[in-house]
Amino acid sequence: MSEPVIQFANVVKSYGDGPPALVGLNLQVRAGEALAVLGPSGSGKSTLLNLLAGLDKPSSGTVTVAGKRVDSMSESASARFRRERVGIVFQFFNLLDDLTVLDNVVLSAQLTGMSRGAARSRAAELLDSLGVGRHARAFPGRLSGGERQRVAVARALMNRPPVLLADEPTGALDSASGEDVKQLLTDLNSAGQTIVLVTHDVLLAAACATRTIELVDGRVVRDVVAAVR
């Protein structure tokens, strides 16, 4: 069996004096898995995602992603990690309104020092494959929610990250757009992309995930491998 691409070992995360957001989390995700993280508000889903992306550090325990110890990285190393090892799709897209669609997508590649030509070429390919190539010169404000989320997915995939993180990717979409994104994630995972999907949408988890865990009060209360999709 291959080494896990994501490993949480006894991770605890506390904020101030309140109850911990994650309590002794032990979790492994193998390459090619699509893991859905379910749970009610305040269960620790977003905290888990933030720790995975290096956006936050655990109070104790270790987090390893694609061979890198994320919990002990400096800010600069964490930034480099996010460029190279993970792609993030946010609930509210987080596209920059004053950059074109194409410029939004190439941004993460440019931060790694990729030449503009090579970055634009890869970005155009991604946008075309995701069905939004015709909007490359438009600004995000002109796109529908579903189209913006596709652009966000293209941006997340620019640097071919081993892991794709999606935080409520359909949360801000209408049902039709949500279906589009659902299918997109399924197709990506079928092609071998490791995905960690944080959602409260059980149907989305059932449709996209090969494995589902449920968090309640910072603890994994259920860990189920999905039947064949």
Partner: peptide, 16 residues
């Protein structure tokens, strides 16, 4: 600040 958060989430280092 929100845009800054996006940049940093995409991998913009503190120096950048």
């Amino acid at each position: 600040v929100h845009d800054l958060g996006v940049f940093k989430a995409l991998g913009m280092s503190p120096r950048q």
